[in-house]
Structures are given as C-alpha cells and as structure tokens.
Design a protein around this nucleic acid. Structure first.
Lengths: 110, 110
DNA sequence: ATCACATATTCGCATCTGCAAATATATGCA
DNA sequence: TGCATATATTTGCAGATGCGAATATGTGAT
C-alpha cells in the first residue's frame, strides 16, 4: 500500500478516529450537534461528572472536533464540523443493517 | 439526553467505532475497499506480521465490518459495507480542512 | 499418514486509557 | 480584595489493548 496513504491513515486515526474511540465522546458530539453547550450543560445532559466531561472535551478540542469559546464565566463548546455527525450517522446505518441481518439469521436458525 | 439514543451510541461505539480505533484496522479496511484479499496479501500490503493481521481481522469480523469466506486453503476477506469507507472518507475531508485551517493560522502568526 | 502452506490463537509484557477524587485555575461580582 | 461559580488539571489505580514470538489448527496434495 502507498506509503503516503498509510501516513494519511495514521494521521486520520490519531487526529479524528481516536476521538471517536470512546462512547462518552460520541455522545458529547451528538449532544453538541443539537446546539452549542457549556460544560455543566453537557455534564447534566450525559449524567456524567464534570471533570470527566472536561477530560473528554480536551481530547476532542486537541483533535479540532469541537471549538471552545469563552462567554463570561462559561465556556461554550460547539461542534467543529457537521460532517463528523454525518459520518457517525452513516456508521449508525451500517450498524442498523447489521443488526437486522443478524436477527434475520437468528430467525432462520429456529 | 434520550436514554434510547445513549444506548444506541454505546452500541455504535462497541460494534463499529471500536473497530476504527486502531490505524492498522483502518488501513485493512482501505486495503479491502480496493478488492477482497486473503490474509497473506493483507500482511504484505500493510507490511505487517501475519498474526497481527489475523488478530485485527478477528476484531473486524466480530463487528461485522468484514466478511470471511474460505476458498480452499485461503480465507478471502471482503469489506462488509462500502458505507464504512464513505464515513472514513468524510472524516478524511474533515481532517484535511482542519489541517489547512491550522496552516493558515500558522501563517497568520508569522 | 504426512508434509507444506494458510490462518488462528495463546502468552507474557508493556503501554495506553478511563475513572473518581481532590486540587488548581480562571472569571464575575460584591 | 474576597467569595462563589465554572472549568481544567493532577494523581493513583484498575482494566483494556496492542505487539512479537511461539504454538496450534485447518486445508490440500502426494
């Protein structure tokens, strides 16, 4: 395989896919797709301690997947690129099809 | 956030996104998007030991992201769903835009 | 049955990663 | 300045994960 593509894939993983490798982070991205939020709002929405949310936000920030903007005492987080949600929705479609295939298979085994 | 959506996100991560949380597995998916391959061919394409490839293939198989089919002594692996590559390409676009934004920012700081 | 080849699995180890709790660093206001 | 609120970071630890090397299993051919 092309060395250049391999390098690009490594970077893709390090910069983006690595950000998706935790369910709480995916949930944060979906929560933000619904509108910008500050840390406390995210903590409440996901029913998760604030330090945990902050840690995940740091990872998403470092990867450029969310944008932070200070607004007085609060820091408002915004989804950096809607295509991230588009990609996740595509993967959800794949998941949905797999699940229905599996249940069809299970039915066939009766 | 809706409990049902949260459950779906957890499953999405466990079943699909978890499969993307390693650069070698992403590289395997791209290699297969170019056509089905057996294990040895993948090992050569990615310049990676065969046991390592097999271990990653097992993870991708368990998640339904690739399909295995025996053909004599060989086992041919095939990408299960092209939308996985579509999603990865979307994320690559996001990455590309981020990189250009960052370099523009770097230029602005000169 | 046996040999060669293709693939899968196990083992031991080092690394990474997430969490909770505590602590530190802003910011706004009195 | 001092206090309250919002966010970030550190620490210690438990569990997950990847790797190389060795080994096991499966397949086809002689």
């Amino acid at each position: 395989m092309d060395k250049k593509l391999l390098r690009e894939i490594n970077q893709l993983h390090a910069e983006v896919c690595g950000g998706l490798s935790d369910p709480k982070r995916i949930a944060i991205l979906y929560a933000l797709s619904d509108g910008s939020k500050n840390v406390m709002e995210l903590a409440e929405t996901l029913d998760t301690p604030q330090p945990t949310i902050s840690r995940h936000l740091k990872i998403l920030r470092e990867r450029g997947m969310v944008v932070a903007e200070r607004k007085g005492a609060n820091i408002i987080y915004t989804l950096a690129d809607k295509r991230i949600i588009k990609a996740l929705d595509l993967l959800r479609e794949v998941l949905g099809d797999q699940l229905s295939k599996r249940s069809a298979l299970a039915d066939a085994m009766i």
